Amino acid sequence: NSASGPLPDGWEQAMTQDGEIYYINHKNKTTSWLDPRLDPRFAMNQR
């Protein structure tokens, strides 16, 4: 992992069949290639 600590509440790390890691936001029912622990847009929304 490139980030430390647990994923934010509602997020899950998953892997594609090709072995690529992505992240699932169960609250918004969206997915992201960016780790939410590193995404400044997500961090701003949590303050």
Score class of each variant (00 low, 15 high):
N1K: 09
N1C: 01
N1E: 06
S2K: 15
S2M: 10
S2L: 08
S2I: 12
A3K: 15
A3P: 07
A3N: 15
A3E: 11
S4D: 10
S4M: 08
S4T: 12
G5K: 09
G5I: 11
G5S: 09
G5P: 04
G5E: 12
G5M: 10
P6T: 09
P6H: 07
P6E: 14
P6C: 11
P6L: 11
L7N: 05
L7A: 03
L7H: 05
P8G: 07
P8D: 04
P8M: 07
P8F: 04
P8Q: 05
P8W: 04
P8C: 11
P8T: 11
D9E: 10
G10Q: 07
G10D: 11
W11K: 00
W11E: 02
W11P: 00
W11Y: 06
E12V: 07
E12Y: 05
E12L: 04
E12W: 02
E12H: 06
E12G: 06
E12K: 09
Q13L: 08
Q13A: 09
Q13S: 10
Q13N: 05
Q13G: 05
A14W: 03
A14S: 10
M15S: 14
T16I: 01
Q17S: 14
D18V: 07
D18L: 08
D18F: 06
G19V: 03
G19C: 03
E20Q: 05
E20R: 05
I21R: 12
I21P: 11
I21W: 07
I21T: 13
Y22L: 01
Y22N: 01
Y22F: 07
Y22H: 02
Y23C: 00
I24V: 09
I24E: 03
N25V: 00
N25A: 02
N25C: 10
N25M: 02
N25H: 14
H26Y: 13
H26C: 05
H26K: 15
H26N: 04
H26F: 10
K27E: 11
K27V: 09
N28D: 12
N28G: 14
N28V: 12
K29C: 12
K29A: 12
K29F: 04
K29M: 08
T30N: 01
T30V: 15
T30R: 02
T30G: 04
T30Q: 15
T30W: 15
T30D: 02
T31R: 01
T31C: 04
S32A: 07
W33R: 04
W33I: 03
W33M: 04
W33N: 05
W33A: 03
L34V: 09
L34K: 14
L34H: 12
D35K: 06
D35S: 04
D35C: 05
D35G: 02
P36K: 00
P36W: 00
R37D: 01
R37H: 03
R37E: 02
L38W: 08
L38I: 13
L38K: 15
L38R: 13
L38T: 15
L38D: 14
L38H: 12
D39L: 15
D39G: 12
D39F: 15
D39E: 14
D39P: 10
P40A: 13
P40F: 14
P40L: 15
R41I: 15
R41Y: 15
R41H: 15
R41W: 15
R41M: 15
R41D: 14
F42M: 11
F42C: 13
F42R: 12
F42Y: 10
F42E: 13
F42Q: 14
F42G: 13
F42D: 11
F42K: 07
A43P: 14
A43Y: 06
A43S: 13
M44Q: 12
M44T: 13
M44R: 09
M44H: 08
M44G: 12
M44W: 11
N45D: 07
N45P: 06
N45I: 09
N45Q: 07
N45W: 09
Q46H: 12
Q46E: 14
Q46L: 08
Q46C: 04
R47W: 06
R47F: 09
R47K: 05
R47V: 07
